[in-house]
Amino acid sequence: MRGRPGRGVMDFDPGVITRNLSYLLWGRLAEGDPGGLLLTILMAVSAGALALVAGVGFALAAWRCPGTIRRLLFLSADLIRGIPLIFIIFWLYFLLPALLGGDVPGAAPVILALAWFSSAAVMYSTLAGLEALPKGQREAALASGLSEGQALRWVLLPQTLRNVMPSYVALLVSLVKDTSLAFIVNVTELSTLAGQVNNRTQLYPMEIFLFTAALYFLLCRAVSLAGGRLARLRH
């Protein structure tokens, strides 16, 4: 499988890319089975949305309930970040069908694993953002009769989400890259399909993996750029 002797940079053949372009970009979308770059984007977006909701929720819980709940949240976040992401995928890939007892679409365990993993980072970033707000913001809200919950909802959280936006964008970029781990369990996103094409054609690893890397690079850049726009827009 390793690069064959006798082929170098000089023999670069873009034909293998054009022949497999639609497969790498959206897999078997025509048969109702999205794959490739499209599936990568779908997985990153859904895992990102789940991670954002869960992570912000965890951060609010940790903010409002110091003590045992906060310590438990920290402990589980550190635990989840202490093991390789692959293992979280393994666990969910194995446990989800066992627990739900039925057919689980292949991408679902990976999406959940990515969301779970990222939610820990979202929690830490959000909590840091809340704690970095000047403490006068909370005091001013309380002084005018708002409850702790109202102060959080109307004064602290809106400012935190805006301030932490750059971290969220960075986390989404990481998520895009982390979807490639679906390769390990054969979910047909971009990396897996690139591996398939490489196995099938055998002769063009340079072309295939450079093209794949370029797609990821452009996607990550696009996310960063759009995120940066969004953050500036809301000022």
């Binding site: 390793r2 690069g3 490639s180 960063s224």
Partner: peptide, 16 residues
Amino acid sequence: DTPLLVQILFWYFAAF
């Protein structure tokens, strides 16, 4: 801005 996995695949299958 590219996944480590793709980088490793590149080094192993292509660069080698």
